[in-house]
Design a protein around this nucleic acid. Sequence first.
DNA 1: TATTGTTATACTCTATAACTATA
DNA 2: TATAGTTATAGAGTATAACAATA
Lengths: 155, 155
Amino acid sequence: MVPEDSTDVLVDGLVRSAFQVMGVLTRIGAEHDLSLTQLRVLGILRDRQPRMSDLAAFLGLDKSTMSGLIARAERRGLLTRGTSPEDKRAVVVLITDAGRDLTRRMYEEARGALAPATGRIGPEQRRHLAQLLEPLLSPPLPAAPRPERPVRGTP
Amino acid sequence: MVPEDSTDVLVDGLVRSAFQVMGVLTRIGAEHDLSLTQLRVLGILRDRQPRMSDLAAFLGLDKSTMSGLIARAERRGLLTRGTSPEDKRAVVVLITDAGRDLTRRMYEEARGALAPATGRIGPEQRRHLAQLLEPLLSPPLPAAPRPERPVRGTP
DNA sequence: TATTGTTATACTCTATAACTATA
DNA sequence: TATAGTTATAGAGTATAACAATA
């Protein structure tokens, strides 16, 4: 029995946890006819109005992939495209009320679906786990950095 | 400032961590022309010989999806299909030496790619984090439950 | 009859390449 | 010239439906 390296056991746990969480989110998304990526985009848009290129860079996707993703979500009325006043080439993406509602519902469902897991430890431990996780997390997309004032979408 | 619920902060951390880890695994898989699902399948096969239906159930995918996934990986020589002696309808999936090598390399790359994150806390804390995570994890596919003895593949 | 797996089909996700418009 | 975004195209991932073989 070899003594286990602390990084190895942690990475193993993080990977297994990640697959488990992704499984839940994928299923919940699918129940609302959304891909995991679209669900993630909606989550990002809750408090941001990024440009197409911001989203593509953050998600590690090609800009052409974003075009299709955003187009399908826009067709469903979950978000709209707006123009930036500062750069006429840019397209900013804005969540709609319908998109916001759906997103809220899905994240509630995710909390419920993960409850059997998170409920296996006590509230103190949950807080402690969240605190230990925190330093590992990459910074999210900055909230609403651009533009200063909300932008008019095309309804 | 509303006091945050312990479950909410934890779920938020788990979701962000999951997207981060999936991003790393997706990139590493892509660098070896493998999808996230195929990378996961190879990881599962390291110490198991599941049937197609076991894999499909565990991954939450349709059996027809498995057929395509396994066919593409088999064409690349990463795994083979074998037959079960107990049930002539069943197909068991076996990793090849090439598949095992590639899998080991990819998981090493993942450890390296996650090192900047996991290195932000000390070894004690890494161990502690892994311990807190442990109770939340779903049980993996049982290791090599069927068959008792290894099965002959079709080389 | 029910289960295991494959095939045919259709749609989404994804990247590459070529294009337009703006900086 | 370089950057932001769209469109055309092609391959992989996915599910549904229909099917063959075995239980």
